[in-house]
Amino acid sequence: MSQWIEYLSEPKRLTLTWEPPLTVPGRTRWIVGEVRRTSDGVEFRYLKGAEFSMENNGRTESELRATGYLGYPAFDSRGSDKTIFDDHVLEAFLRRLPPPTRSDFGAYLEHFRIQTTDRVSPMALLGATEARLPGDGFSLIDPFDPEQAFCDAVIEVAGHRHYPDSRAALVPGGVLELTPEPDHPHDPNAVRISADGITVGYVNRVQAPSVSAWISTRQVEATLLRLNGSTTKPRAFVFLKVRPLAGLKAA
């Protein structure tokens, strides 16, 4: 494979999302919290009230809990009003990654097109891998910095399972088109991903605002990295390459 990350995003914050099990009707991804750098280190906070509803298309925390959500196990706020945690936050999330001492750790990095962890911060590694574990529904997503001039990333195609007929148009290494949809009924920042004019899904809504901004101000290339998953949950991954527009000074 020739696609390797040259410019890894260095996030100041990461968004914690959660997806219910496949058996939950109307299954969708929820934005539930944020990991962010502070002057004292790193903290985690749950989104609450109006901020939670704004990030989740008007849905409420009660609706989230009705899907079986109990919060992130390392930061249990049930029975209290505590929403911010600052003790061993990075350590808690880094436990979701395989230890570097494992013999297959290099293969794990290659899966995300990372060649080495030299000079890679814990926040960058968590954002690049999304720190997924099979079965618990949580992932950490780097929202990206729209001002960044150089960036490479592997992102999953959101909603790909809703476009099963698009699989025939997808070839690893094939060029994909990214099209902003400001008139999208649910998200004015929506960015459609297509192959030969056939919709294969969307950029996830956490990263869509930055990707949409990049499309207007940067040279953005998207190619299909891989297809995997199962029949009930097919998955597609994109290698995203962002560079300054030719002839223009990078911001």
Rank of each mutant, 00 (worst) to 15 (best):
E19W: 00
T17N: 01
T116R: 09
R27P: 02
A66N: 11
V171N: 05
D136R: 08
L94E: 14
T67N: 13
T28S: 07
K12Q: 15
A149R: 06
L225W: 02
L97H: 06
F52S: 05
F75R: 11
D142M: 03
P244K: 08
R27C: 10
E19T: 15
S77Y: 02
S230A: 10
Q148W: 05
H88K: 15
N204L: 00
D165K: 07
V157R: 02
R132V: 15
A124E: 04
A169S: 12
D187C: 03
T231N: 07
A169G: 03
I198H: 04
L70C: 11
G79D: 12
R45S: 13
K249D: 14
V24M: 06
G135M: 08
D142K: 01
L133G: 11
E55N: 04
D187N: 10
P11R: 05
D142Q: 01
R65E: 12
S103P: 01
V238I: 15
L125Y: 02
L90R: 12
L248F: 08
E147I: 10
S53Y: 05
P143G: 05
V203N: 06
I5K: 13
A128K: 05
V206W: 05
Y163V: 10
L90T: 13
A158H: 01
E61F: 03
D81A: 09
E181L: 06
S9M: 10
P100Q: 08
P73V: 07
S39I: 14
A92H: 10
R235I: 15
P209M: 11
N204M: 00
L248I: 12
A236E: 12
V191E: 02
T179L: 06
A74L: 11
A153T: 09
R96F: 02
L47T: 08
G71W: 01
T179G: 03
G68Y: 05
A251L: 13
Y202S: 09
G137K: 07
A74K: 11
C151S: 05
A153K: 04
S103L: 12
S9N: 13
G229W: 07
N57Q: 11
A208P: 03
R102Q: 14
G33I: 04
G197F: 08
S216G: 08
G174A: 08
R95H: 10
W214N: 05
E34S: 01
R13Q: 15
F237M: 08
Y46L: 02
A168P: 02
R45L: 14
R96D: 02
E51T: 14
A208S: 11
S2N: 13
P182A: 09
L170P: 00
A169T: 10
I31N: 01
E221T: 09
A213P: 01
V191C: 07
A158M: 06
L47K: 03
L245S: 08
W30V: 12
G58C: 03
P244I: 10
E221K: 10
I5R: 12
F144I: 04
S139F: 03
A208G: 04
P11K: 01
V203W: 03
E19Q: 14
F85D: 05
V120M: 12
H88N: 13
V200K: 00
